[in-house]
């Protein structure tokens, strides 16, 4: 059996002229917690909906356990448990009936169904709420119930779209603990969020998505140099007019933007250390008298925020 539970190749989806996903490639190692992070509109939900089989891609391939996503929806549905970002509940059902309905869709026999419902309610700590109407549960409880629903058929792969959104800090911690517990139970979990640090705590690997394109992917340790390569902040002080230096800088290769900060200029720069050296050479060659020229160190979250401007298309 392959080491990757899920393989995504060249996944592309456009909504008219809007590019939701462009040539997305992903590999989810078996038993891992994999985070998909990006600002709103980056394409996370589109990617998860396609993988869950509820949306058709324009191009690309998805394989689970080496088998292509094709017409056999039943196979996929059995392998995947999907929890959407905005999930609803059926208000006139009790918690156990809600789970029973979904268990029936997977053709679980009555005895197995009843046992599974009890196990899941215990797992998500809702045993006492078994006979409570779903609309009477708190948001956090509904979230956990929805997670139990995604687990009702014991899937191999769990797709969780922004599972912690709308939860208070205590419920977020509880949810993270639950995700870790599911990983210990052998599940592979694909979780999306727009907050990198939220995923950093629970994910083995992370992929960063921006405007439908993959910006970086790997472990947290691997991600940082990738982000740094794509985005740095440089600070420059000069004896000359800052406006003329600013006008000169914006025309240089790798300079994304330049802004004035007191008596300094801050440069958003995309490039490696050699590119920084080249930029410095040009500034000096142009005759500007520099007092200082250095890179400002950024933490991972800053790098992520600078990389993903949160622009949707």
């Amino acid at each position: 059996m392959s080491d990757s539970v899920l393989q995504v190749r060249h996944l592309t989806k456009h909504y008219g002229k809007i590019k939701a996903l462009e040539q997305l490639d992903l590999d989810l190692p078996r038993g891992s917690v994999f985070g998909l992070v990006g600002p709103n509109g980056a394409g996370k939900t589109t990617a998860l909906r396609i993988i869950a089989g509820v949306l058709e891609p324009d191009a690309g391939e998805i394989m689970i356990d080496g088998r292509l996503l094709d017409g056999d929806h039943t196979y996929w549905a059995a392998k995947i448990g999907y929890m959407p970002d905005f999930f609803g509940v059926y208000p006139d059902l009790m918690a156990w009936e809600y789970l029973d309905f979904f268990a029936r869709t997977y053709r679980l026999p009555a005895v197995q169904r009843a046992r599974r419902i009890d196990e899941l309610l215990e797992l998500v700590d809702l045993t006492e709420k078994k006979y409570t109407f779903v609309q009477a549960l708190s948001r956090g409880m509904q979230q956990r119930l929805c997670l139990a629903r995604a687990l009702v058929h014991d899937p191999e792969l769990l797709l969780l779209d922004e599972p912690a959104s709308g939860l208070d800090p205590r419920a977020r911690v509880a949810f993270r603990t639950l995700v870790k517990r599911l990983q210990q139970l052998g599940k592979t979990i694909f979780v999306s969020s727009h907050i990198l640090l939220e995923l950093a705590e629970i994910c083995d690997q992370v992929a960063i998505l921006e405007k439908g394109e993959l910006k970086a992917a790997g472990t947290m340790a691997e991600i940082e140099p990738q982000l740094t390569k794509q985005h740095r902040t440089l600070r420059v002080r000069s004896l000359d007019e800052l406006s003329s230096l600013q006008a000169f800088l914006v025309q240089q290769d790798g300079v994304l933007s330049v802004r004035q900060d007191g008596d300094c200029l801050e440069i958003d720069f995309g490039g490696d250390e050699a590119a920084i050296a080249t930029l410095l050479q040009r500034v000096v060659a142009a005759g500007f008298r520099l007092l200082s020229f250095h890179e400002i160190s950024s933490n991972l979250e800053d790098l992520y925020l600078q990389l993903t401007k949160g622009e949707t298309q």
Partner: peptide, 17 residues
């Protein structure tokens, strides 16, 4: 109603044809 209640995606993700 399923679409408005946000339960439709969950329904489509089940094996129901």
């Amino acid at each position: 109603g399923e679409v408005e209640r946000k339960t439709y995606d969950m329904l489509l993700a089940t094996p129901l044809s």
